[in-house]
Write a protein that binds this DNA or RNA. Structure first.
Lengths: 265, 265
DNA sequence: CATTAGGTTCCAAATAGTGAAACTCAGTTT
DNA sequence: AAACTGAGTTTCACTATTTGGAACCTAATG
């Protein structure tokens, strides 16, 4: 896993939120004693933070099992965040169209602290797995969307991001070094799209394009995922056009996007 | 809208999170000056809080327009919350089956601070509107899921919850008083399901059942929504059986649910 | 050019946060 | 059954952080 390493001291609030992250990272309800060593805080301090977070509904405390897990207040807040700050609402229509056209799984992602944050998804078939996917994070160095975004990062931010990659060899095609990654990024910039050829998971390939705002900054990426069992490399490459076009459309939409004047629901 | 009125002073963290809520409530990016009057905090203090939240990625600050909106960190955190603390993962299968069986929109909700928090949804047709729905909040006094849950609240919590309802008359069938609501709740307890007969929106009706844990506490509710144009009252009432059964199955699943031992993804 | 209003910074006073240590309460173990 | 252990909770004197009134910047505006 990548180390978060956010602005370390933002006073009490920063420290408390760091604990919240820590609990979330576990991915399962955790006990006080499990958090303590990872938090690097005095027992009493951590205790107070957890209490506060729980009272604030940012954490849910299970009385029986004595475990902490991220709380429901976050779900409410995230809905606002997703609707207001993510690319998802802007990209809605393009995502729908692309998914319908190609009939494959489509992902929309943004870069977050050197990791890929998926913000929306259209499934190949099943209507299942709703929110299950939005908010999910994944590695940048071995995914199509991740590499597409890294390729267009300015050098300073790229260096930071690369420093955060784990370069864990998920498959034997995974890029294992910063150098290999940088080479790949150059190639991606040249051809305008990124490929993930079973670098993250055997049997899964995808093609991704960066979404670049008017001033040239990466604001996200979009990808189409296929299985090597059902789709040849040629067929995958043939999708470069549509994917790049979709990315361009989302970029255009984002540039003109003004937040719609809602009435308070 | 209902007043949140959370534990007011939890020190700096509590006050800061209250500001976060405030910003989220706007439902659109807001400027400092718009927040100031609503926050009831000194200018300098509010300013510092917003700075902190933005630096922490809990808020996103738009440099050009000088607006604050909920930040992406919330989306990441909420994914954990949704997967760990909500009923959604437990209810997955039942939701899928019910939606397939009835072919109508199905909602899964939990009670949050006197309001309804939708945590999952299956759409009638289109595969659209992902996360768009999870995390959404709605009123309790005029929705099927809301009333179903209120009906099974212990008196003290019920009184609190009722005090938070706005009793705004969305339609001419909306219940307008605590008394009318309490009567309705008694009826709901008797028959085991709740109806929303165009009380929230004209043309929309739904039937909902509470999800009760082993010890009799409400842990959520499930509903099927239909339009009066396409579904008669009789047809809607005929769904009571399947909906109640689904609720019972989710309750059973929740009672046995142990969080699956994930490997860190 | 004076005025206002949104936004930002200062800094002494006051408050809220800190954490070592002591305590509680189940389960052990001897 | 007394002593031990380890997880969780509380205390309290010390101190670092937070606080907010007021002053200070800008742009816009009349």
């Amino acid at each position: 896993m990548t180390t978060p390493q956010r602005e370390t001291s933002d006073g009490t609030v920063g420290r408390t939120l760091a604990v919240l992250d820590l609990v979330a990272e576990f991915g399962r309800p955790v006990r006080f004693a499990e958090i303590l060593p990872k938090a690097g805080l005095p027992k009493a301090t951590l205790y107070r933070f957890l209490q506060t977070l729980a009272r604030q509904d940012m954490l849910a405390f299970d009385d029986n099992r004595q475990t902490y897990a991220p709380g429901m207040r976050l779900v409410r807040l995230a809905h606002s965040a997703w609707a207001q700050s993510s690319l998802a609402p802007v990209a809605q229509d393009v995502m729908d169209r692309l998914a319908r056209e190609i009939g494959q799984t489509v992902h929309l992602a943004q870069l977050d602290n050197g990791a890929v944050l998926y913000v929306d998804k259209r499934n190949a078939r099943q209507p299942v797995e709703m929110f299950a996917q939005s908010g999910k994070v994944g590695p940048a160095y071995c995914t199509g969307v991740g590499k597409a975004m890294l390729a267009h990062l300015p050098e300073d931010r790229l260096a930071q991001a690369i420093a955060r990659q784990s370069f864990h060899a998920h498959t034997d095609r995974t890029l294992r070094t910063p150098e290999a990654l940088r080479d790949e990024l150059t190639r991606i910039r040249e051809r305008g799209y990124a490929l993930d050829d079973e670098e993250h998971e055997v049997g899964i390939a995808c093609i991704a394009a960066p979404i670049l705002s008017g001033n040239g900054r990466v604001i996200g990426a979009i990808s189409v995922t296929t299985t090597t069992a059902t789709t040849s490399r040629e067929q995958l490459l043939a999708l470069a056009g549509p994917v790049k076009e979709a990315a361009a459309q989302i970029a255009a939409a984002a540039d003109t996007w003004r937040f719609p004047e809602h009435k308070q629901a």
